[in-house]
Amino acid sequence: MPVEFSGWAAYSDKSKHLKPGQEPKKSHGYTMYHGTLKTNAPAIISSGFRPSFGGTLGPGVYCSRDINKAMGYPACALNDRVVLKLRVRVGKVKKIDRQNMNLMTSWHQNGYDTAWLPASVLGLEEDCVFDPKRLTVIGIAHCTDTSAKSSLESLIKQKSQSQEPKGKELKLCKGCGMQTQDKHTMEKCWSCKASICPFMKNHVCRKKGK
């Protein structure tokens, strides 16, 4: 049975843009930061993260929505440190607070993808993501070496382009304005009969003539 459309407005979930102190939600993506040595950054961008074998929250990749946390790692000269800006798909999240200390390093074995340590526990919030494939480097948040920063940003751009789908050329949908490989099927609004795209964020029915 075909879907019938009338006037609507899409709902945007603002919780995806949480501040460091707010609890992350299951399956959302967040901007986070990771501090590393300048010499390690190219390999991370090109080949992905290597999870640590241990730490406060056990094995995984450590990052934070608070850039101040990432700015403290690793222990090295400021000019040797780079802070990577990440997009992280957190999956199933376990909050580790004083009531859940028994899961401090065993959260993954209990079915969680990410552990979240609130700022109230150790001062600055911290996250540990078990699967490195959940993290994507999207920018350079801090690098005092202008030349190195430019080189790393170029590497990020190359990596992003290499991951774009090959084959079909992206086309602009006249209905919703999105770029798409497959042409969107236009539908008619059952109320005003206007031709609309199901992927449009909103549609306001035209007023019928007198």
Rank of each mutant, 00 (worst) to 15 (best):
D131Y: 06
P132Q: 09
R134C: 11
Y73M: 04
W8P: 01
N100Y: 06
K69P: 00
I196K: 02
K207C: 09
M200D: 05
W107K: 07
N202C: 10
T105Y: 00
S52I: 06
C76S: 12
I44D: 00
W107F: 10
R65T: 10
S120C: 05
G29E: 12
M32E: 08
F199A: 10
A9T: 14
G48I: 04
P42A: 11
W8Y: 14
A43M: 13
L37D: 00
W107P: 01
A70D: 01
A41Q: 11
G209A: 09
G123C: 06
D113K: 00
P118L: 08
I96S: 00
K174C: 11
S15M: 02
S191W: 05
M186K: 10
S120L: 07
V83E: 04
A194Q: 10
P132K: 06
E164G: 04
K14D: 11
S52C: 13
T39M: 01
V82D: 01
T114I: 04
D66C: 09
I140R: 05
K159N: 15
D80Y: 04
I96D: 00
I196S: 01
E169H: 08
A10N: 05
H203R: 10
D131I: 06
Y73F: 13
V129L: 08
L170P: 07
F49L: 03
P24G: 08
C63L: 03
F49V: 03
G167Y: 11
K19G: 13
P198W: 02
D131L: 10
V83K: 05
F5L: 09
T31K: 09
P132G: 11
S47I: 01
K133E: 06
M104P: 00
